[in-house]
Design a protein around this nucleic acid. Sequence first.
DNA 1: CGCGGCTTTGATGTTCATCAAGTAAAGTGG
DNA 2: CCACTTTACTTGATGAACATCAAAGCCGCG
Lengths: 243, 243
Amino acid sequence: MQVFRYDIYHIFMKIIPHTSNCKTCTFKSLLFTKMKDEELQFVNKDRKEMVFDKGEMIIEEGTPVKEFLYLKRGLVKLVKKGENQKERIICIARPLDYVSLLSTFSEKTYNYSISALEESSVCTINLESMKEVVKQNGAFALELLEHITRSSNFVIQSTYDIDDKHLRGRIAYILLWFSQKIYHKMKFELPISRKEIGELINMTTENVIRILSEFRKDRIITIDGKTIEILNLEMLERLSKSG
Amino acid sequence: MQVFRYDIYHIFMKIIPHTSNCKTCTFKSLLFTKMKDEELQFVNKDRKEMVFDKGEMIIEEGTPVKEFLYLKRGLVKLVKKGENQKERIICIARPLDYVSLLSTFSEKTYNYSISALEESSVCTINLESMKEVVKQNGAFALELLEHITRSSNFVIQSTYDIDDKHLRGRIAYILLWFSQKIYHKMKFELPISRKEIGELINMTTENVIRILSEFRKDRIITIDGKTIEILNLEMLERLSKSG
DNA sequence: CGCGGCTTTGATGTTCATCAAGTAAAGTGG
DNA sequence: CCACTTTACTTGATGAACATCAAAGCCGCG
């Protein structure tokens, strides 16, 4: 497949030409079940598909919201700057998690950044086109409403859950989350650094490392760089619950 | 105006009979600008308006979502039980803040409780009727989308903001919030107890009291029971920002 | 090869929760 | 309406959890 280079937001992104369209996209059946064929063609007109390398920034906080964006393939993080400029990771999302919509319909500018944690494919649709379809197709609008509120609830819920736990519980929680929700394996490679884990579950880098080491010493997990294997699942679950 | 008594969710609520309707409601112009007259009449058919006294529970966490609900008059708190049964106040809402929608479109049961902090009027509309209107009227759906994402963003944003601050900063933040966003006065009566303030900004009751006392000693505020007056606004703003 | 960022461990200090104990206020039942 | 109970409020003392600081090894990258 041909790959073009394009300069947007001061970084280079690869834009895939329109060899495909929304109608034949595997995502149609998942995200856009309620969208009619002519509407799919309509939004497909100005659709762009882009591939981002691991580490590349997809959206930068503060830039204007001009497009409706969704993740087609890969893994991304949503990052927000606090008042003190300290970064906080709001969530880590796979395709279908749909969290990129939080700003889309109510804000003029993105209130978070999005970065690729793996090579990721992103589709963008002109926001005004999308709004047109929402206006025309209420069934689709209702579906969108459900998706968005579900994402918001997840973010809110997990933020409160994590804040209630002690450091050990937070590490246990996030290891279980990666294992069960992202990789579906007992052995997996962490897609983020220790520092980023801290930004995700609100603790210092040093304490992330310290407690991972503790877990290793207690034979709850093994650590090899970014590769983690869970040895004692029950213990980890108990730690995650007990706070 | 006549008042009937009705038993729903095991508590007594006062239901106001249909002397009014959505078409003449002052809220139409604010919330439902995109709704057509016949749609307003449609949702008005099974609409219920209820008045809750201060302290009464409007919605209990875990009960099924059967209605679309909005606050017409008053002040409410949204409360969520943590995994350890400790309560957390998600937010405090006036009419138009619209937060009761977070569960509405994606969850089978409410994942938070709603209680009245003042005497409050609440309108409920059959949820299925509401979904019908969303399906028929995309412009209205888009408006709803905007409202809901705005509320979610507010909850997420303020949660992160508060967590980043030290205790002094949290108290400063919440006093400013009540003063500027709720009462628009320098002197106001707190609608919640010290314990609830703690549940709202994530600190213990003792420390809420301690820091309020500190602020009093430093002549930043005066305290008379639940009545607070802000004496040194700049100092409070500096404390809120500095963490 | 050296620089910066990531990782790791230890020592130190501070913030905050917890415990305790007492007063005031508000609701409850006879 | 008053005794009674409960809930809210308040202050101080103590200790634990966690952030911060410091120092050193590691790795990738220009």
